[in-house]
Amino acid sequence: MDSIDNILKNALEAVESSKYQIFEICETARGERNSLYSELQRVMEETTETIDIVDKLELDYKRSRIRLTEVSRDFRRFSEDDIRIAYEAATGFQMQLTLFREKEENLKQRRDDLQKRVKNVDKQVERAETVVSQMNVVTEYLTGDLNQVTRILESAKNRQLLGLKIVLAQEEERKRIAREIHDGLAQTMANVVLRSEIAERMLGMQQYPAVKEELIDLKGQVRGSLEEVRKIIFNLRPMALDDLGLTPTLRKYIQDFEDKTKVHTKLDILGRETRLPSGMEIAIFRLVQESFSNVLKHSSATSVTLEITFQKQMVKIMIMDNGIGFDVDYTEARASAGNHFGLMGMRERVELLEGRMDIESAKGEGTRVSMLIPISSETQ
């Protein structure tokens, strides 16, 4: 432990020394920036004044040329002195205009150069301030408790892993929706287009009975597509959750599940049914949805029962199936290694709700998943 303290002490001294050196560099850069900014302001003001003078000289030079042209054409009205005076005036304005145009160009170049230098110095100051800030964080870590540093690092790592898992879950959901649309709705709509073209040709050939049959079949396919769209929307966000609550939504979901998969389903509601916070209702629905999906994918079950018990301060969810079962310890180990995202995702969702999930299963004896979730108004 003493060696670790010495390492931390030496590292802290090196960081502090480097921090003050960077701070001095930052202060020097700030001074240079202020000086450059003051010069830039002066150059910009002088540039504006010079531009105004150039505009005025251009107007005066234009008028003097017009005057020179007038006196040069009419020798009866104007004498040689008038022509000479007009010529000298035009030449004078031209020389001044040339000088001030050159001055304007030089000032603009100087202004652009100063702006670039100010921008570069600003970046240096910003980088130096960032490094100083990072070193302050490092100093706080090194001067704090080593265990606290370890906990902070582990917490950051866990947050990153959780973020990655959320991204993976989102991508899996997108893939599932894409498959549903491609395999179901997209194929049906393509078939509808084809059948409508056939009906159009038959109509042109005046085969009215056949056209009628095609249109009847076409109407049935459109109704099927509409039902498929409604199922996809329901899976994305069951609107019945907001309107009717958790129990009616789950009742519809398991009925649709039974109709689609031919797996016998049963829903038992125990206790006094009550509306839960919105966030908790959608979380419980997703947990049930994932559980039923696991049953369909892995259990080969012919029946599954969902039991929800409403208590005063807790909701108990139990999903039981008569499938082939599995080795819980082995599957939990695979989930911890990241090889079973469904089970791992369910457990993390329950933990985010400050609940507990237990799994009971054995090969050939089905599976029982129990989840206890405390009711909290803060879940909304």
Rank of each mutant, 00 (worst) to 15 (best):
P374G: 07
T331P: 10
S293R: 12
L270W: 03
G323M: 01
Q96M: 04
M44G: 12
S196N: 14
Q160V: 03
R111G: 03
E129N: 08
R334Q: 10
N136S: 11
A178N: 05
V131T: 12
H182F: 08
Q41D: 00
K116G: 09
E172M: 15
I282W: 05
I4K: 08
L161D: 09
N136K: 13
I373M: 07
R63K: 03
E126M: 06
I22G: 13
T305L: 10
P374S: 11
D321C: 04
E228K: 10
K165D: 13
E200P: 05
M344T: 05
S35H: 08
R174V: 04
S17E: 11
D82M: 03
S133M: 08
T309C: 11
S18Q: 06
L97D: 00
D242K: 15
V138E: 09
D243I: 15
R349C: 04
E154V: 12
Q206M: 12
K56E: 00
R334Y: 08
D2K: 11
R111V: 03
S225V: 01
I324N: 15
G184P: 02
R356V: 07
T98S: 02
G355I: 11
E214Q: 06
G184I: 07
I373K: 04
E173Y: 11
A301G: 06
D242A: 08
A283S: 14
P209F: 06
R179H: 05
E180T: 10
G220E: 06
D55P: 00
V138W: 05
S79M: 03
L203P: 00
Y87N: 10
T379L: 13
F78T: 06
M205W: 11
V328Y: 02
K316G: 13
M357V: 04
R67Y: 04
V167E: 14
H264A: 15
Q221C: 14
M344A: 15
I324C: 14
P238R: 10
I233T: 15
Q94G: 10
G220P: 02
P209A: 11
A199G: 12
M320S: 10
N106V: 04
L352V: 05
H340Q: 04
Q134M: 08
V193Y: 05
E16D: 07
D82G: 11
A210G: 13
S291R: 12
G245D: 05
G224F: 09
E129L: 09
Q115Y: 06
M189C: 13
Q109Y: 12
L36W: 02
K266D: 15
G355S: 01
Q148M: 09
G245F: 06
K312W: 04
L246M: 02
L168R: 14
N294K: 04
D55Q: 02
L40A: 13
I232D: 04
Q311W: 09
L99Y: 01
H182W: 09
M280L: 15
R368S: 15
D243G: 09
M314G: 09
I181Y: 02
K363Y: 01
V288L: 11
A335I: 02
M189Y: 06
E290C: 03
